[in-house]
Design a protein around this nucleic acid. Structure first.
Lengths: 215, 215
DNA sequence: AACATATATTGACACTGTCAAGATAACTCA
DNA sequence: TGAGTTATCTTGACAGTGTCAATATATGTT
C-alpha cells in the first residue's frame, strides 16, 4: 500500500511492465473471490486474467496468503465503516441501535459471503497465517464491540450481571454462527434471516421498554 | 457399508487384494483428518499409508467427496449418541439438561475440531455435495433439537412467546458460532469456553427457577 | 552512459484429484 | 473341476495447483 502509486504515469509506453499490477491483482482477485470463493481463486488464473505470467504476482505479494490477507483487510475496513455508521446514528434509540447492528452484521455477511468466509475462515486464522496488518484491523473491530456491549449494559439493554467480555463473545458468536450457517449453505432459506435476528435480539436484550432512551 | 464384510477370511493369502481396504481407508482417513484437517487429507497420501496404489480408493469411493461424507456421517452418529445420552438422563432437572446439552455440543466440537469442521464446513455443504446418506443422518439431528426446544418451551425454560423453529435456529447458531470461533483459531483461549457457554445459557433460559422440575 | 533496482518472464518441481486401460485375484455356476 | 463374470488393484496419463530459481527487460539514479 506504500508503493506502486507513482508508477501510473506510463500506462501504455510498453506492455512488459504492467504499470499498476498490484492494484489490478487485488481488484481481479476480489472479483474472482466474490464469484468463486477462496477455493476458486488460483494465482495462475488470476495472473492470466490480469494479462501477466504466472509468477508475476510474486513480485507484489510474498505468497497467496499475503494476497488473501490484503483482501480480508479491505473487508474488515468496509465492515468497520458500516458499523461506525450504525453506532453514530442518533435518530434511533439505543435498543434499536443494538437491533440494527445485529441485523447489519448478518446482512454484511449475506451480501459478501465469500469475503466474510475469507475474513473469518480458517484459511487465514486456523493456519495462524494472518499478517500483522490484518490483525491490526481485525482485533480493534471486536474490541469496539466489547466497548459497545459495556455501554449497552450500563443503559440496561443488556444484562448487567453478566461479564462484559463473555457477553460480547456470546453476541459475536451468535452473529457469527447465524452468518456461517447461511453462507456455508447449511441453511438455504434466506427469507428467515430477519426473523432469526429478531429472535436473537429479543433473547439478548432486557425487556425494559422503559429505558428506551436515546444513546 | 453393505459390502466388504465377507472378505475378511483371507487376510494374508496374498497382498494384491488388500482384504478390507474400505474400512482401512476410513480409519486412516479419520486419523489423518484428526491430525491435519480436511486440507491436509489427500487421497494419494491416504492410499500410500494404506499400502495401496493411488487409484485403489476409487474402487470403494466414487471420489474424495464421498469419502469425506462417509466420515462426516460417522461424526453425526457419534454426536447423536452423545446427545441421546444427555437427553435421556433423569438425574438432573430439565434446565440443567439444557445447560449440559449446550456444553456438550461445544465440548464435542472442541474435542473433534477437524471432524466438526468437516461435518458443518463448506467443503461439504456449500458445494452442495452431501450424499443422501449424510443428509439422512444430519437433518434428523437438528430436527431432534427442534423437538427438544418445543419441550423446553412447554416447561417454561425457554420463552414460549418465541417461534420454536427460530428459537432452535438461534440456539444452534449460537452453539455453532462459539464452536467455530474456537476451532477456527479465532479464539485461542479455551479456558473461557465454559464461561461463555454459561453466559449463553443464562441468556436463553428464563429465570423461572420455580420450574426446576425433572423432565 | 553505467549501474542498480523493480518488474516480468520461462522452466522446473512437487504436489493434487481423477480418468482410462490393463492386470490379477476371487466368486459364481456349469 | 473349469470357464466366465465380477471385484479389486495396478500403472500411465492429464490438467491443475503454489512456488522457487534463473533470466530478461524496463525504469530510476548517479
Amino acid at each position: 500500500m506504500n508503493q506502486k502509486t507513482s508508477k501510473r504515469t506510463h500506462s501504455n509506453k510498453s506492455n512488459y511492465h504492467h504499470g499498476d499490477l498490484r492494484s489490478a491483482l487485488i481488484n481481479e482477485a476480489t472479483q474472482i473471490l466474490k464469484e468463486s470463493g477462496v477455493e476458486g481463486l488460483s494465482l495462475r488464473k488470476l495472473a492470466d486474467k490480469a494479462g501477466v505470467s504466472r509468477t508475476a504476482p510474486y513480485h507484489h505479494f510474498k505468497d497467496k496468503n499475503q494476497l488473501l490477507c490484503t483482501i480480508a483487510e479491505q473487508g474488515f475496513e468496509r465492515w468497520q465503516s458500516d458499523a461506525e455508521l450504525i453506532f453514530n446514528r442518533d435518530d434511533i434509540t439505543a435498543k434499536q441501535k443494538y437491533r440494527v447492528f445485529f441485523h447489519g452484521y448478518i446482512q454484511y455477511a449475506a451480501d459478501n459471503p465469500e469475503l466474510y468466509d475469507l475474513m473469518f475462515g480458517r484459511t487465514i486464522w486456523k493456519q495462524n497465517s494472518a499478517t500483522q496488518a490484518l490483525k491490526d484491523v481485525a482485533f480493534p473491530s471486536f474490541q469496539h464491540q466489547v466497548e459497545m456491549t459495556k455501554k449497552w449494559q450500563r443503559q440496561g439493554i443488556m444484562p448487567s450481571n453478566e461479564n462484559t467480555l463473555r457477553l460480547s463473545q456470546v453476541t459475536w458468536g451468535t452473529m457469527h454462527g447465524i452468518a456461517r450457517l447461511l453462507i456455508d449453505g447449511i441453511y438455504a432459506d434466506r427469507t428467515h434471516i430477519d426473523e432469526m435476528c429478531d429472535c436473537a435480539v429479543n433473547l439478548f436484550t432486557r425487556q425494559l421498554s422503559i429505558s428506551d432512551e436515546v444513546d
